[in-house]
Design a protein around this nucleic acid. Structure first.
Length: 441
RNA sequence: GGCCCUAUCGUCUAACGGUUAGGACGGAAGCUUCUCAAGCUUUAAAUCGGGGUUCGAUUCCCCGUAGGGUCACCA
């Protein structure tokens, strides 16, 4: 029986995390769950100066929102006692030493703890890239702690990973060069070396590592803009990984089922918002009407009144909006306000800026009105309305009939099709609007 | 610059030595209900270069080139 798989996501709470950071979490989570193992979240807060509680809270909340539920979570600072103990052991072993030095920059200590570099070649197996060998000589005696109580990254990582039984270190490619250092510490402490999987980097459109400084957006922004967590997970999982087959829309459960480290890409990928929004639209389409409505209303909170026609317009909204923010803005900008309010007709619009003849148009509108008047209230559906109007429109010229009809109903240059609008308005309103339009011609 | 990683359409990717190099996003065109959106159909678009190995290289090896990462008392 192999050891239970344990992976970890180890962000430092020094800022808001972007898509690349969370992509790492997605992979670590999917792999752990696929293997029936555990997923740990470790907040790496050894840098007291820069770590902020608000960032930690944001990370924890966002992971929860994404559905990347951790089995255990802790702060690195909570484990300082262990770090100190191992630090003392290293010093006693002669593997590390207290080094007196001049403080060159402000805040530097005159005394730090350095690891005695044995200057050897370190080879490790990377699950994604195969064997990687590096000479550690040029690393020198690197700093592993500012003091016995203040461990620095490498030491803390090694001790915590070992203590928590981490079997697979899944992290960004930018950590490859840190790995030999950490392996050296592991060996000095008598730990075994976990398996490493260094993920290809997520790049911005400028082809450099995603970073807040270079304008990478925090993932929480996407959350606020009404992206669905399932879509984000799906997109992130597909950035640098691909299951077998050509299916692309996956639920998180399906991703867990399909996930393998072997199919992870070696080369970096660019974060593409356009494709992300396609994923989001696809996931929005999968939502039931009830859920869609609930999410939409959540996003509309505090953004004015919820229009009474909201439920009626749902199908139109669903096909138009790729995000909930977009859906909200459709509502706010009055994209569909003509469904509630009265419309003001103008000759220019009804006649398509003079392209149509006034008397013909008037006649067409009257004729269509006549056809619709024969439909019962129950039969006033998009489908039936179309069937009633279409033969006439085809006969008389679709553009000549449908444009005036649609603008008579919507009062707008661009809108959904006239049949949908009519069915939402209902028979009475529809007939009235057609009459009003015909009157001004 | 040293060290390390990488290299298939614009982008995400498939093809574990033999395919007309496939799919998706985006683009273009057409169709569907006049406009917008969605949908459907069609279409353009790629193996970085050079050497090997092999009957045969996108695939394996080497050398270039290009891109990226990393060289902190940050993680």
């Amino acid at each position: 029986m192999n050891k239970k798989v344990v992976t970890r996501f180890a962000p430092s709470p020094t800022g808001l995390l972007h898509g690349g950071n969370y992509r790492t979490a997605v992979f670590a989570y999917l792999f752990a769950k696929k293997e029936g193992g555990e997923f740990i979240v470790r907040i790496e807060d050894t840098d007291k100066e820069r770590s902020k509680k608000e960032y930690e809270d944001n990370i924890v909340e966002t992971l929860e929102w994404l559905g990347l539920t951790e089995d255990r979570r802790f702060r690195q600072s909570e484990h300082v006692a262990r770090h100190t103990k191992e630090l003392e052991r290293l010093i006693k072993n002669g593997a590390a030493y207290v080094s007196k030095e001049e403080a060159v920059t402000e805040g530097q200590r005159s005394e730090v703890i350095r690891f005695k570099n044995p200057n050897v070649e370190v080879t490790f197996k990377d699950v994604i890239r195969g064997e990687i060998t590096m000479n550690t000589t040029d690393l020198g005696d690197f700093v592993i702690a500012r003091s016995l109580q203040e461990p620095v990254f490498h030491l803390a990582v090694v001790v915590d990973d070992a203590d928590e039984g981490v079997t697979h270190v899944i992290r960004g490619e930018d950590h490859i060069s840190n790995t030999p250092r950490q392996i050296l510490i592991q060996r000095a402490l008598g730990y075994s070396t976990p398996l490493y999987a260094h993920l290809p980097l997520v790049l911005g459109s400028d082809r450099t590592k995603l970073s807040k400084r270079r304008g990478a957006r925090a993932l929480t922004e996407y959350r606020n803009e009404g992206y669905l967590p399932s879509a984000l997970i799906n997109y992130l999982a597909f950035l640098g990984w691909h299951p077998e087959g050509e299916k692309e829309i996956y639920s998180i459960e399906e991703l867990v089922e399909a996930f393998t480290l072997e199919r992870i890409q070696k080369s970096a990928g660019i974060f593409d918002e356009v494709k992300l929004s396609w994923f989001n639209h696809e996931h929005m389409k999968l939502l039931s009407d009830d859920v869609f409505l609930a999410v939409l209303q959540m996003h509309m909170k505090g953004k004015g009144v919820i229009p009474s026609y909201l439920t009626k317009v749902l199908p139109l909204l669903r096909e138009r909006a790729a995000t909930f923010a977009q859906a909200v803005s459709f509502m706010e900008s009055g994209e569909f306000s003509f469904l509630d309010d009265s419309v003001t007709h103008t000759r220019e619009l009804l006649l398509q800026n003079g392209k149509l003849d006034a008397s013909f148009t008037s006649a067409h509108l009257q004729a269509v009105r006549g056809l619709l008047a024969e439909l019962s209230n129950e039969a006033f559906t998009s489908e039936k309305i179309k069937n009633a109007v279409f033969p006439y429109a085809t006969e008389a010229g679709r553009g000549a009939v449908l444009w005036p009809l649609r603008t008579a109903l919507s009062g707008k240059e661009k809108s959904p099709d006239p049949f949908s609008i009519a069915s939402i308005l209902g028979k009475e309103k529809t007939l009235r609007r057609i009459e009003e339009a015909a009157k001004i011609l």
